[in-house]
């Protein structure tokens, strides 16, 4: 059965503002899923709290709407309990990089095979436009009473430092390109992050569609751009250029795949090495029917014969 993007749409009313970048991202996700023909029964979407986290209700899948900032650990638990599932986290920059920042870092370190889509608009929409962790310093949106006095985090550099093995940036309203990035992220074996720049037309009156369109360009415009790293040696060679591109965020903002590491093993693979059989009988599927055995049989190190 070949699925169409519409097959991933639920009946729920999508309750975002007109002009919200979330619409673009959601549609790109639908299309990526359709092109990969992922079975909704084997797909898990995990959201935190915020406008974008509501995506969980709009995508036909197994979905968990969690609590603020904790989508990544919940998703990690799902994936480790049943590695055959495709797991995608959807959340905003505030959820994933602010309140959930520690978990964002930890996922990179673990390299669990899942995808994080950051809906990155620099503001907390649901609570009326407070500065998000990616809002540049001194910017004064109309929602803020004073200019933003806190600096911004660079999601790509953070992801690189944390150990994500796939790092990309897209733009919410470039549907086709974004679809391809999300597709590549899901196909990637390991922790993947797609930072999606998006306007918040209601609260961020500075980083508008026009603002972005003036600045963004694609790394692939340079035909020599090759973000794939297949060995530690190759990483050493390519890292300076990758970092340079990740740091570019002023007059010009690059989009595309910045980095893809194909040699790093995933946490699931490490678990399988540690406990052969884990992947075929993981925690979510291991049959549990009766007590394992008498403790005197199982824990012989604690038993003494006197």
């Amino acid at each position: 059965m070949v699925r169409k993007w519409i097959d991933y749409k639920t009946e729920a009313w999508v309750q975002w503002c007109p002009g919200c970048g979330d619409f673009g991202i959601l549609n790109a996700i639908y299309r990526a899923l359709a092109e990969l023909d992922i079975d909704p029964s084997k797909l898990v979407i995990v959201g935190g709290i915020g406008c974008s986290s509501r995506s969980v209700y709009y995508i036909k899948a197994n979905a968990i709407h969690t609590i603020h900032g904790r989508a990544i650990p919940v998703a990690s638990g799902v994936k480790l309990a049943n590695p055959e599932l495709t797991v995608v986290v959807t959340g905003g920059d505030g959820d994933l990089l602010g309140i959930g920042g520690g978990h964002f870092v930890a996922l990179g370190r673990r390299n669990i095979d899942m995808t994080v889509v950051v809906y990155d608009n620099g503001v907390y929409g649901l609570t009326k436009g407070q500065a998000g962790p990616t809002l540049p310093v001194w910017l004064k949106t109309k929602a803020l009473p004073h200019p933003n006095i806190q600096g911004s985090v660079n999601p790509l550099l953070l992801a690189f430092a944390a150990g994500y093995t796939f790092i990309a940036r897209g733009y919410a309203f470039h549907l086709n390109q974004l679809k391809d990035l999300i597709k590549a992220a899901i196909q990637h074996r390991g922790a993947a992050v797609v930072d999606v720049l998006q306007p918040c037309p209601t609260y961020n009156d500075i980083m508008t569609n026009e603002w972005y369109e003036k600045r963004i360009y694609y790394l692939s415009e340079d035909s020599s751009w090759d973000p794939v790293v297949r060995s530690p040696q190759e990483l050493k060679e390519k890292a300076p250029k990758i970092l340079e591109k990740m740091m570019e965020f002023e007059d010009r903002i690059p989009l595309g795949i910045f980095y893809q590491n194909t040699y790093m093993e995933t946490l699931e693979e490490r678990l399988e090495k540690l406990m052969p059989g884990y992947l075929s009988s993981p925690p979510g599927r291991r049959p549990v029917t009766k007590p394992l055995a008498h403790p005197f049989e199982l824990f012989k190190d604690k038993v003494v014969q006197v």
Binding site: V46, I64, T66, P73, G77, K79
Partner: peptide
């Protein structure tokens, strides 16, 4: 086999088991 994982904090420790339990 039992997956035993050291979490980055107690927030993650409990939220991971929420996800794992939801997955069976």
């Amino acid at each position: 086999s039992i997956v035993v994982l050291q979490a980055e904090d107690e927030l993650a420790a409990v939220n991971m088991i929420l996800g794992a339990a939801a997955a069976g």
